[in-house]
């Protein structure tokens, strides 16, 4: 025992420090191992299974045959004509891709248009009132998404609130066809994901130095120029974060397009579900899932790039 202490004491101090640090690192890894293992398996496991399945052959009644095939990936983009077997692009899939991206972008835009003034309003309230307004923003989360979507269906339906209101104003004679359209899907998604835009925007606007707005105003900028030249560049990180938070769930949305789109405005989520269900084509479903993942990853890459650039611009 004594000898042990002796040998430790004889270590140069820096060497001792390094050894201790190393021991700490090992211990930290050891202690966080359960979490790391669960996270790794839970996060990447299903993805690898999905990737693996996309390269297998579809079984006739669902499931897969353990035989390698590129058929699933082929069907994502191409199809054979039913009659003469000529090779054609899978236009049904491609139009669904396009619709998913388009509706998600419009949803994101709508969330910015409605979320920015909301976030700005909350951030400029007296500090004591802000948590109340934030609380109101989060109230919709208390109810199940399905119930909220059914509520929107009621509002947009043939004899719903919107049509009744427009008719009573005499603006329209026949009820408008609102439900089961792309518009209905977009409205539904914008409503559902709006808080995801408001919260990050609020966080950046709250930190905004409002004397900068006065300075710009003092230097002959009109209100619009203050917004364009000072506010928007400074809240850009929040704007980008909110956009990503809205765009990603929008592009993979399932419930909202299913209920509000009425089977006509399918989005990627519905297409994937179809392949694992009625379509009985698991490899195609898996390949579509991976495609969706790639789209989301491209969006994330855009996010990382734009925030790191603005981070260089004004790192504090």
């Amino acid at each position: 025992m004594d000898q042990n202490i002796q040998s430790v004491v004889e270590f140069p101090e820096s060497k001792l420090e390094r050894l201790k640090a190393k021991q700490r690192t090992i211990r930290n890894y050891f202690l966080s191992a359960p979490a790391l293992i669960v996270l790794t398996i839970a996060a990447s496991g299903p993805l690898f299974i999905m990737l693996f399945y996309s390269f297998l052959t579809a079984d006739e009644w669902g499931g897969v045959v353990w035989q390698g095939s590129l058929q699933g990936w082929f069907e994502v983009f191409m199809r054979h004509d039913i009659f003469d077997g000529t090779l054609l692009p899978a236009d049904a899939h491609l139009s669904i891709f396009w619709r998913s991206i388009k509706l998600s972008l419009v949803t994101t835009l709508l969330c910015i248009v409605f979320g920015f003034p909301t976030a700005y309003f909350i951030a400029t309230r007296p500090r004591s009132q802000r948590s109340f307004w934030l609380f109101l923003v989060t109230v919709p989360f208390w109810t199940n998404l399905l119930i909220r979507t059914f509520a929107i269906m009621q509002i947009l339906s043939h004899s719903g609130f919107v049509n009744k209101f427009l008719q009573s104003l005499g603006l329209i004679e026949e009820p408008l066809r609102l439900l089961y359209t792309e518009t209905a899907v977009t409205i539904g998604m914008a409503y559902v994901y709006l808080p995801l835009m408001v919260l990050p925007l609020y966080a950046t606007i709250e930190r905004l130095d409002f004397s900068l707005l006065e300075a710009a105003y003092d230097l002959y900028a009109s209100r619009l120029q203050v917004l364009r030249r000072v506010i928007i560049p400074l809240v850009k990180p929040g704007l980008v974060a909110g956009s990503i938070l809205v765009f990603i769930p929008s592009i993979g949305a399932y419930v909202t397009p299913r209920l509000l789109g009425g089977g006509k405005s399918l989005m990627l989520g519905n297409l994937i579900e179809l392949q694992f269900g009625q379509g009985r084509n698991w490899p195609l479903g898996a390949a579509l899932s991976i495609t969706l993942l790639v789209i989301v990853m491209v969006a994330m890459l855009f996010y990382v790039r734009s925030t790191s650039r603005s981070g260089v611009n004004h790192a504090h």
């Binding site: 130095d209 004397s211 300075a215 560049p233 400074l234 611009n313």
Partner: peptide, 14 residues
Amino acid sequence: SVNTVFQSYALFPH
């Protein structure tokens, strides 16, 4: 036609 030098300077960080 009046300009201000603010106490906090309020320079545009971006």
